[in-house]
Design a protein around this nucleic acid. Structure first.
Lengths: 244, 244
DNA sequence: CAGTGGTCTAGACCACACG
DNA sequence: GTGTGGTCTAGACCACTGA
């Protein structure tokens, strides 16, 4: 079976993964040695190691120096890992939550000094600002603000396709190519205005994510603030011990 | 200068890092090509790539296919990446914060049903519970609770060596070997008791981390709750788009 | 001791960006 | 086309584990 133009290691990764799931590869939790896998898949050991590294990194297998490679203990939970960047809509769908967007407040204006600093653009450069509430049923669950430098997004881009996620919009356009997001995590008490927007009591604790979205070229293409009402979304992160 | 027994790639990583900091390596943000670095450090290109991968992963450099390797845009903030698990003490030291531990409340007792579930042990199995406040100067900045199954930690382990971090204790003992931590992130308003402990107003928003620490064998060796007063620690996470 | 994963090398070819 | 990073190979040696 010939595959696409994917890297060899990627293909091997998927084959090993499939072998683990079907139980053909792992005998009592132990995988064949790297040398044996190398022969079986007819690739170099380096490629096998590349594939196993990916699987180890995503928590599928565990490697023990001088012992062997083993399938990891049963996955702890299914949930929203913060490591991967996905839109709130995609996330909600995954956990079986129906969401829709409230009225969006869209403005083309000059960046404030703070915003310019966060976006690494010149002060007063034009930006597109999008603010909206996300609801499930009639219940507000999040308030999102995106600030995007004008070159990357214009008001006309926000057509029928816009259901609340600037991220999905970028992915759909394929342009700019996205790299990663640097996200600060903090708690914040709702002020009166936020409480009114989210229909909660003033002073209630919210989870606030402050994110800078980088293109693959290293430009900041979006600065966003997200406020989450507790209880609807669960965010977690897998933290690894040591190593560089 | 001869180094320790560290992997070559690790040493090269540090040398490149130092070269970037002093400005000797990067000319106008651009690093030498991999081939040139390979010659300069007298190692194979694979080793150079290994080193650059580490630096890329930790956000120090950006690599552009067909173009070159560049020093990453100036680090937005000094803070703690959540991806890597490190003790609060280590973290504080890194960001130049002096911390010490308040009086620890230590108890050997039976696990509550909730705790037993979180630790995946039998109900009422013996656990060691450690609760304490972390201060900087006289200012409380965090409240930590650790619940550890008795087999992994006993009261006698908490000798002079204990300065507040169960994690560091495990690392120091080298046993059990640690794997990763699964951490839930949520905001929480301080109740009266927490407010008293942390000397803040009742109702103030705290960042709460609820973590299960796994050994390399997949056993849960610690269940912890951490409450952080905003403003002293900054937590962030780098979120990647798509890919495996 | 034998077998495993961890590191490193030298060389090759491919995919991409830019002039 | 030229130069860059991305992938892959074959082989070597080291470090660790467990019988």
């Amino acid at each position: 079976m010939v595959r696409k133009n994917l890297p060899l290691a990627q293909q091997v990764t998927e084959e090993i993964l499939s072998g683990i799931r079907t139980g053909d590869l792992a005998r009592e939790g132990a995988l064949p040695s790297e040398a044996e896998l190398s022969q079986r898949f007819n690739v170099s050991r380096a490629t096998i190691r590349d594939a196993l590294s990916r699987l180890e990194h995503s928590g599928v297998v565990i490697r023990k120096h001088g012992v062997g490679t083993f399938v990891a203990p049963p996955a702890p939970v299914i949930g929203a890992g913060l490591e991967e960047l996905e839109s709130l809509e995609t996330l909600a769908q995954r956990i079986g939550l129906e969401t829709h967007m409230g009225r969006a407040a869209i403005a083309e204006r000059a960046a404030t000094p703070d915003e310019a600093a966060c976006l690494q653009i010149a002060p007063a450069d034009p930006v597109l600002s999008v603010a909206r509430v996300i609801l499930t049923g009639k219940r507000p669950v999040a308030y999102l603000i995106d600030i995007v430098p004008a070159p990357f997004l214009s008001r006309s881009d926000l057509g029928d396709a816009f259901h609340g996620s600037v991220l999905d919009l970028f992915v759909q356009k394929g342009q700019p190519a996205l790299g990663h997001s640097y996200t600060n995590i903090m708690p914040e008490a709702a002020d009166d205005e936020m409480a009114r927007r989210l229909k909660i009591r003033s002073g209630e604790a919210l989870l606030k994510l402050e994110a800078q979205l980088y293109s693959r070229e290293g430009r900041i293409v979006d600065y966003s603030l997200s406020y989450f009402v507790p209880g609807y979304f669960r965010f977690h992160v897998v933290r690894r011990v040591g190593k560089t």
